[in-house]
Design a protein around this nucleic acid. Structure first.
Lengths: 334, 334
DNA sequence: GGCTAGACTGTAAGCGCTTACATGTGCACA
DNA sequence: TGTGCACATGTAAGCGCTTACAGTCTAGCC
């Protein structure tokens, strides 16, 4: 691979001039520029971005950390980030945290050691104070799907509480009063906030939260299955169930059907996230729309604006989810 | 951030010794090693991997290019790659090609300019000869889901033809003879090979391929919908339809149902890929299992073996898909 | 013609590491 | 005591760029 040195000798100019042409960083006469450009073309020169990065202390790459790579949720976020950054000729280095504290820290350290210009993190396990401290360092940090007051402007998050609220309210409006809830793991903030919204809606309608109608799942399909199985076993009557995400909703619907329940006639089901398969389920799942792609895009835009100083960009820190009403919910009729 | 220089002065040794401790590259007395290690710990030192990479011409990172980031298919492949590489403390830099020639080349050039030690590519648009030439360069290349005889040992691929074959054969065995086919874009190799397998099975059973029962889709849900709509419009009778992938199968099933057809009683449907939502559809989709995770893992393993010289690894270049029989297919009864 | 400002280009010192080579040390052996 | 050798450590030259600073050249002015 040709180096800048070879380009400079072929063009008959100095290294510095070649560098200037590459970076448009100073006045270079058109004639010189042409010489350099044609030398580059002749040699098929491409700058070594590692060397650029070392010399300039800027890598034009943004580090991303997500809990998982597979599954529709995070891949859609990634897609939003990548598309936005790619348009600005920046690139992504992706790491996985598995919602595990050590792995998250390890991943972040790796990204920092790669001189990333900024980090976009979807972390679950590390603590708020740790993140606040991290963000006080020299590498800008954006948090996605997490809200920390001390660094609010670095957070791109969903109003999960509102999501939980609208999900529940939609059922209340349909006349349901005995509403079960299969939550995500409560140590995850988003799962917890959704539950808070649920309770808020209940209390607005004067319905008492019945903790026997709640099951704490794991955000996976199997958690939904288990949850539904357990709820049915209690023998307590319920006409609707809200699930912390769509995966669990799918599991819950399966088990409900296996137990001879018709959806939505016997039990209405609401999910959360509106992932790609939500409209493939049977019946098609009513769910709370999580604008993952948009939020990924917004996180990337934050970086473009605050790190790469691109002008004219509006940042929206909080997204308000809406209910997507499909066929898995119906009015209470008895 | 502390540099190796600060570590060396604090430990009272030379730069070279610190480097040796980091890389276990030569004999260093235990006493010296301890001094260095504690100096590192005291300073919270982490090596700058950009500088390491420039000096050693090795980046410990593997470049990945996939057509898309969103959707279950590629994200599962990525997940397989990342997990395997992560275990070996290697990292991934991910780029997207959008099945567009220019973007694919651009992405590959970016990855090479980042000094990736190897590239794992899922490319659709660039030509075989171009890839052969690329792979003759100094950066090792692995192709995933593509088979080029001239570089067969660098290819990790699915026997797509066999997949198309088993899908069709399963229907033939159920008694179907009028079998429609909604293919992927025929310029994509995998789509084409699946079709070849389909025809092969037909001819084995003495059934003529009817090109009026074929529709060329785009691998997206909407392509499946369009395909089914068009097939129904022809008025030609068919009792089963095979789709080039699961997304199209989902679209096709929807349209079939909208037209009053029962699945599988009026029409059997088979998909391809077995993506995450295949068992969420109604009825649950019979499909050809594409071991995306395993293949991603295998591509990563190839790199571990051939680039990072990790011993004891078996490479399997071709994977043979199997049919997953679910509820969307049934015997022909008339 | 001599002078100066401003535009262009070159020189060289790093960025934080790795590594070939040189040097130093201690020990076994004759 | 001298020799040779293996092991431990240091020295310094890069890796391919960026960029502060210095130098050269031209045009415009008195």
């Amino acid at each position: 691979m040709a180096t800048i040195y070879e380009v400079s000798t072929l063009a008959g100019v100095s290294l510095a001039t070649v560098s200037r042409v590459m970076n448009n960083s100073a006045h270079v006469t058109d004639k010189t520029r042409q010489k350099v450009l044609s030398a580059m073309a002749e040699l098929g020169y491409r700058p070594n971005s590692i060397a650029q990065s070392l010399a300039s202390n800027r890598s034009n790459s943004v580090g991303i950390l997500v809990p998982e790579l597979h599954g529709p949720f995070f891949s859609t976020i990634l897609s939003g980030i990548e598309a936005e950054l790619r348009g600005a000729r920046k690139h992504v280095i992706i790491t996985v945290g598995h919602s595990d504290k050590e792995k998250e820290i390890d991943g972040i350290e790796f990204l920092m050691s790669r001189n990333c210009d900024a980090l976009i993190l979807h972390v679950d396990a590390v603590s708020d104070p740790w993140l606040v401290e991290l963000s006080a360092g020299s590498t800008p940090i954006v948090l996605i799907n997490r809200s920390i007051p001390a660094m609010a402007s670095n957070c791109i998050n969903l109003d999960n509480e509102h999501g939980g609220y609208v999900a529940t309210k939609s059922l209340l409006e349909l006349g349901h009063r005995d509403i079960a809830y299969i939550s995500g793991p409560q140590w995850k903030k988003d799962a917890n906030e959704r539950l808070v919204g649920h309770k808020k809606a209940l209390s607005e309608y004067g319905v008492r939260f019945n903790k026997n109608l709640m099951f704490e799942g794991d955000f996976h399909e199997s958690g939904g299955s288990k949850g539904m199985a357990q709820l049915l076993q209690t023998g307590i009557r319920f006409s609707a169930v809200i699930c912390g995400n769509d995966d669990m909703a799918a599991g819950a619907m399966d088990v409900a059907r296996e137990n001879g329940l018709a959806i939505p006639d016997d039990v209405s089901v609401v999910g959360f996230d509106n992932v790609n398969f939500a409209h493939f389920t049977y019946p098609k799942l009513s769910t709370v729309d999580y604008p993952m792609n948009d939020m990924g895009q917004m996180a990337a835009r934050w970086v473009l604006k605050n790190v790469y100083e691109q002008g004219g960009l509006e940042i929206q820190n909080t997204f308000r989810p809406e209910l997507i009403s499909r066929a898995s919910t119906g009015p209470l009729d008895r």
